[in-house]
Amino acid sequence: MIGKALETLFIKIWVIVKLNLFFWLFSCCGLIVAGVGPALKTVNDLFVSHEFNYKDITLKEGWHYFKQNFVRGNLLFYGTVLLLAALAYNLFLSVQIQGLLFLAIDFLLVFAMIYGLVTFQYGLLLDSYYEIGLKNLLKLAFISTLSNFMNLLKIAIGVSLILFITWKFKGLILFGTFSMMQIWSYTATKAWRQTIDQRLGLHA
């Protein structure tokens, strides 16, 4: 029993490490600037396809996904970056001004940034899970984030915790941070994806 549990634990750790190394490899293939978005989406595609079946997660399949995801991944990633940059700039301006109204605006802008990040995570996952056009993907991601506030909190808190642990243990940046964020988001949204499947008639 203990041996089986340890084997399962080591397999999960290896999948996390393997996917995170793939993330860095494919990010470098895109010279970082054009590689991060497609690499994140590739990590999602591989995990959605194989979960913790580590033998099926191959570099060859990852490279195929990376090339396929190059345009869509960059559109999703840089669309989110531009949105967050605009919100962050407005937050910077808002915190310079005293007053209860501007304090409320500060909180609203912070929530909007969290909401944007969670919507991005939903977008990556749903795009890996369904064959869907970009416009409909953005609509579905937006609706999904609104559909369940607890899911939004779970993703936000989980990602924040991963980043906090990474801040304490910097080696995770190379070996686990990005894959853990994607795997956590996949796990946290499982119930919602099942609901979508039922509404689409994909499961009886």
Rank of each mutant, 00 (worst) to 15 (best):
V33H: 06
F149W: 13
T58D: 05
L153M: 15
G133H: 01
L40Y: 12
T145L: 04
C29W: 11
L101A: 15
L138E: 00
A34Q: 04
H50L: 00
I32N: 04
L25C: 07
I32L: 13
M1I: 07
H64R: 10
L103E: 15
H50M: 03
C28R: 11
L103T: 14
H203A: 04
I105P: 02
G30F: 01
C28W: 13
Q182N: 14
I13A: 15
G30V: 02
L152T: 11
L138G: 00
L87A: 09
F102N: 15
T145E: 11
N151F: 09
G30L: 03
S179H: 08
V159W: 14
I183P: 04
N148P: 11
F92A: 11
I114L: 13
A85E: 03
C29A: 12
M150A: 15
V36Y: 07
G62H: 06
I32V: 15
G3K: 12
G62F: 04
F164Y: 14
F92Q: 10
S128C: 06
F149C: 11
I143C: 05
I196G: 02
Q121C: 06
G201R: 07
F92R: 09
Q98V: 10
G123Q: 00
A191P: 00
L109T: 11
I2R: 13
V17G: 02
I16H: 03
L46G: 03
S185Y: 07
A86T: 13
L161E: 06
F66K: 03
A188C: 01
